[in-house]
Amino acid sequence: MRRWFILATGLTAQATTSSFLYGLPFLIPALQTDHGLTLTKASLLISAPLLGLLGALIAWGAAADRFGERNVMAIGLALTGVLVLVSLALPGFVLFGVGLLLAGACSASVNAASGRVVLGWFSARERGLAMGIRQTAQPLGVGIAAATLPPIAAHFGFATAVALPAVLCLLSAVLVWFVVVDPPRPERTVSAAASPYTGPVGWTLVRLHTASAMLVVPQFVSATFAVTYLVSSRGWTPVAAGQLVAVVQLAGAAGRILAGVWSDRVASRMRPMRLIAVFALVTMVLWAVGDALDSWLAVAALVATLVVSVTDNGLAFTATAELAGPFWAGRALGVQNTGQNVTAMVAAPLFSTLIMAFGYPVALLVAAVFPAAGTVLTPVAGESAARVDAVEVEVRP
Score class of each variant (00 low, 15 high):
Ala348Val: 15
Pro184Leu: 07
Leu37Arg: 03
Val247Ala: 14
Ala211Thr: 01
Val278Leu: 15
Thr40Ser: 13
Gly252Cys: 13
Ser352Gln: 14
Val98Pro: 02
Pro29Arg: 11
Trp60Val: 00
Gln243Arg: 11
Ile46Thr: 13
Ala348Phe: 08
His209Ser: 02
Thr9Ala: 11
Thr210Glu: 01
Leu51Tyr: 05
Gln14Phe: 02
Thr33Ile: 12
Pro349Arg: 09
Gln135Asp: 14
Leu27Ser: 09
Ala161Phe: 03
Asn341Pro: 07
Ala344Asn: 13
Val310Ser: 13
Pro371Phe: 00
Val86Asn: 14
Leu21Cys: 01
Ile276Leu: 12
Val180Cys: 11
Gly199Asp: 05
Gly132Leu: 14
Leu205Val: 07
Ala13Leu: 10
Thr338Leu: 14
Leu27Gln: 06
Pro91Trp: 14
Ala146Thr: 13
Tyr229Val: 02
Ala251Gln: 05
Ala324Ile: 10
Ile133Gly: 00
Thr320Lys: 08
Thr148Ser: 06
Pro49Asn: 03
Phe370Asn: 04
His155Ala: 05
Leu250Asn: 01
Gly143Met: 09
Leu365Met: 09
Val369Ala: 10
Leu83Cys: 02
Ala146Gly: 13
Leu377Glu: 00
Gly128Arg: 04
Asp389Tyr: 13
Asp182Cys: 05
Val346Gly: 09
Gly314Asp: 12
Leu85Asn: 04
Leu77Thr: 13
Ala280Arg: 06
Leu24Tyr: 10
Ser309Pro: 02
Gly97Arg: 08
Gly115Ala: 10
Phe93Arg: 11
Leu50Arg: 08
Leu297Gln: 06
